[in-house]
């Protein structure tokens, strides 16, 4: 029994990672977006490092959110087009587990690279030194939340022809708590306050999302993608 439950998760995780490896260029685009948009901020706002430092934490977080939103659109799209989503829906395994495998693969290929690149952006936007460690931790946890919540939106819009814009509309309000606690933990650290409480809330959100989002995704896929 345990092995069967495992196989659903691991098989889809491995498959999606392999697919991502074969389409490296496509997978890298959220990270590129993340870096390139950050050059717009000094151009649009100010090159002054003191004023940039004030908004750096929030800006990095907003851009990470947008980059995730861009990539989450394709989470189920190609599977829907080539029919492998149909295969997933009719397998005897519990549907939330393969779904969780796919979401984990998505986080490993977008959220994790975004997190690893973020110190570079922090440097470019002159983020104060105290903010770097909290930025890494909050982004690592936060992007996992973003992938999980975004997957619900992606599942709800997968069978629509112009789902991308709608997905943004559906998911954006649900992202609010994540960005509030994510950027708060960074700004707490910069202000010299204990930054662990907001990070702990982020961890709680993440735990709740791991438990609930795959169920919602499974329900949404069954409701919309099977016909």
């Amino acid at each position: 029994m345990a092995r069967q439950m495992d196989s659903g998760f691991l098989a889809w995780l491995r498959r999606d990672l392999l697919l991502a490896w074969r389409r490296r260029g496509e997978v890298a685009s959220p990270v590129l977006f993340f870096i390139m948009v950050s050059t717009l901020i000094p151009l649009g706002l100010t090159p002054e490092s003191t004023r940039l430092a004030e908004v750096a934490a929030g800006m990095v977080w907003v851009m990470a959110l947008l980059a995730t939103l861009l990539s989450v659109d394709g989470l189920f799209a190609s599977d829907y087009q080539d029919g492998s989503l149909e295969q997933m829906l009719i397998t005897p395994q519990l549907l939330p587990l393969p779904v969780l495998g796919k979401i984990t693969a998505h986080w490993l290929t977008t959220g994790l690279p975004l997190t690893l690149v973020s110190p570079l952006l922090g440097l470019m936007l002159s983020l104060p030194a105290a903010g770097f460690i909290p930025l890494l931790w909050s982004l690592a946890l936060g992007t996992a939340c973003l992938s999980l919540i975004g997957a619900v939106g992606a599942a709800l819009t997968v069978s629509l022809r112009k789902g991308g814009l709608l997905l943004t509309l559906l998911v954006m309000p649900l992202y609010m708590p994540v960005i509030i606690f994510g950027s708060a933990s960074v700004s707490y650290a910069i202000d010299g306050i204990n930054w662990l409480p907001p990070l702990a809330v982020l961890g709680a959100l993440c735990a709740a999302a791991v438990a609930l989002c795959p169920l919602a995704v499974a329900g949404a896929l069954r409701a919309t993608a099977s016909n």
Partner: peptide, 19 residues
Amino acid sequence: ALQYAYHSVDAASKAGAIL
């Protein structure tokens, strides 16, 4: 928006309810 996006009444109803 989700209600209006689907042509199928059944899919629109279920998707809206889940959201």
